[in-house]
Design a protein around this nucleic acid. Structure first.
Lengths: 145, 145
DNA sequence: TTTATTAAAGACAAATGACTCTTAAAACGT
DNA sequence: ACGTTTTAAGAGTCATTTGTCTTTAATAAA
């Protein structure tokens, strides 16, 4: 069951890596993150470029350059990030792929799937990078092996 | 958010179509199902071949041939079908794709995702083709536009 | 026995997602 | 100015999934 694309997963992991940093000023090199998170440098670069264009990251070139969160991680919730990376219809899907599945013309598993999506959405709406970054910092949780 | 592959979705829809039939004897042509469910005939054929090989369907060639459920739809639960089509590790994934994510080495969203997967699994374990077929029969729910 | 009907099988093609590589541009230090 | 470090941009490649087509085999009916 793959819910997020590889690109989204790696983008999220990179954002979490940044949110887990102790120091808040300065830039973190993409090379370092790629090594640390075990992602191809070029692939990660491409993913982070998009996040920079969308305003979640700011970047800086040259020696000691890299990327940094463009906003306070306490204001960055998973929902916004996932919608940004996966598309605005992320939570509006039908499990059986029927177009226009809804209350009026439900598919056989609509009722249940609706609840599941709502729970997932709520969780994503209430979980911030700050919160998860902290859990990483104290070692309760990991981003890579 | 695409949880099931197109192949699984179409396989499931076809199984539901069969489960929703009034008459229980005889075979249903793949052509009819493809038309009714708006799936390419050849694509559906390929999908149903696998389900036949796996013993969920039986098939019959020649005039008035087609496919039929090989087992009582009351004994066919979504879980078995999804595991069959998507692979046995369907419910064992990490949302962030970390290998070996678990209680001992959890990813940042492990706790929540674990619950979500469990709820989904339970629903699939307790929902049979018979049950959904009935809902289709009485028109509460649809398989296509 | 011939013809029509249907699924089985497998080769093939197209589309998508997941990467990879090369070149350019920006910033810095000397 | 020059060379080094770093991100930006985009073309290119590979693998997987999705979808198509052709041929074969089975069955029934005329």
């Amino acid at each position: 069951m793959q819910v997020l694309s590889k690109a989204s997963i790696n983008g999220l992991r990179a954002l979490l890596y940044l949110a887990a940093q102790e120091r808040r000023e300065g830039y973190t090199g993409i090379r370092e993150m790629a090594d640390e998170l075990d992602i191809s440098f070029h692939f990660l670069t491409k993913i982070l470029q998009e996040l920079t264009q969308k305003g979640v990251l700011r970047s800086y070139r040259g020696p000691n350059g890299g990327v940094a969160l463009a906003r306070d991680p306490g204001t960055l919730y998973l929902e916004e990030l996932v919608l940004m990376m996966e598309g605005d219809d992320f939570f509006d899907t039908c499990l059986l792929g029927l177009p226009g599945c809804g209350e009026r013309k439900p598919c056989p598993v609509h009722a249940f799937w609706k609840e599941t999506k709502a729970a997932l959405k709520k969780e994503f709406q209430t979980t911030s990078l700050e919160e998860l970054g902290q859990q990483i910092r104290v070692g309760k949780v990991r981003l890579a092996d």
